[in-house]
Design a binder for these strands. Structure first.
Lengths: 214, 214
DNA sequence: TTAGAAATTGACTGTATAGTCATTTTTTTA
DNA sequence: TAAAAAAATGACTATACAGTCAATTTCTAA
């Protein structure tokens, strides 16, 4: 009965995945609230209404749980961002799409952004550097679009890759600020400001009279 | 002999401050390398060539050492930044001064920036939020300068405070990127890019045709 | 219905390290 | 130079918590 075996195995997998996602959900909350160090596996277990031992059936270590939480969200964010960028036409629109996708995901997934931006992570494996790696592809897409727009003289000839990373920095910074302080402005306003600000800087004009100062 | 007593007390204070700064220097290195959690007081003691007990004569806890390290650097950075901003004339120059001061301090104090930007800090007391608080004053100074420049129509009427924070975000993001990756560009190039980028966006032109998209 | 498999449990262990304090070393002073 | 004060020491303690595993409960299937 190969089919039956197959089905049994699948069911087992499904249960396993369900447990894992239960644990990840609980862990996300706890990590966001306490940070990696202060979060205890006992607390995650309690929130998931599971015994600690069960956690260790599905994950090998606290660190692995942490990585699973981040990878889960990073992958979703990456997919969403790439999708929105791909759907946008011009370079400017792709930049808007990038900013808007991040803002949207941040609203929806507060806990994840807390972990990423505020939180004293402490995981030696999935460091900020690795997270950056994960988010590299969207920036690469922006870079390509920007290069092409520059070639068409649609935007000012800034160094494309640095510009793309700058868009990312701008977005990250604004989101971080919204998480840390009580924002006086709406997310929409902040996103629009960024988009307009970037667009203003992209405007193809004569080079400014600016020099390096200090 | 009140003077003698006075002098003795002062000497004691001097020795105490010297020890504290020795400890802070060692701790800065260890925290930057290992992060708050992984750093041990034993290691800090070893690097300072002191016994652990001595550390606890001058500091109450590991957390207090960590806070002392950050406060030390934050205060220095704040002072440097404010000084450079004050010395600059126009709003644009003040923005340049801000960016350049940060870049310069980052070059000189790698370890501090590692702790601030990369490091899984984990200190519950001096959080990222508190650090932001510390750096608020320079941003306020920028805000004031920007407001006045806008009133004189020297720069485009962006919301001044948001713009000032955006300058800070841009700088932080670029510095963070330089710490995490092996930068292909020089610090000077990165700083100049930022300054030119911001200046381009400040240029007082008609409002762009940009709308909120998506 | 029940035997056996699978999943779950939580009390327990081992370890790492923050923080202590009785003892030793160094400095002061008379 | 010796007695007292101050500073430094590092072996030790107390604790918190990650990770384990024998025992128990729940599920499966014949």
């Amino acid at each position: 009965m190969p089919e039956a075996v197959q089905s049994a195995k699948t069911k087992k997998q499904i249960v396993s995945e369900f447990r894992q996602s239960e644990i990840i959900t609980a862990a996300r909350r706890v990590f966001a609230e306490k940070g990696y160090i202060a979060a205890t596996v006992d607390e995650i277990a309690a929130l998931a209404t599971l015994a600690k031992g069960t956690i260790y059936v599905y994950f090998e270590s606290k660190e692995q749980i942490y990585n699973a939480v981040l990878e889960d969200d990073l992958e979703a964010l990456r997919a969403l961002t790439l999708e929105k960028i791909a759907a946008a036409g011009t370079a400017r629109e792709k930049i808007s799409a990038y900013v808007n996708a991040r803002f949207k995901y941040c609203e929806e997934r507060r806990d994840f952004f807390r972990i990423m931006y505020i939180e004293p992570s402490g995981s030696p494996v999935l460091s900020k550097a690795k997270a950056r790696e994960w988010l590299r592809e969207p920036v690469r897409q922006l870079t390509v679009a920007i290069e092409s727009a520059i070639a068409q003289k649609l935007i000012r000839p800034w160094p494309a890759e640095i510009l793309a990373w700058t868009v990312a920095d701008l977005t990250t910074g604004a989101l971080q600020r919204r998480l840390v302080t009580t924002p006086a402005t709406t997310a929409r306003e902040d996103a629009d400001f960024l988009i307009n600000f970037i667009n203003a800087a992209l405007h193809p004009r004569q080079v400014e009279h600016a020099h390096a100062e200090n």
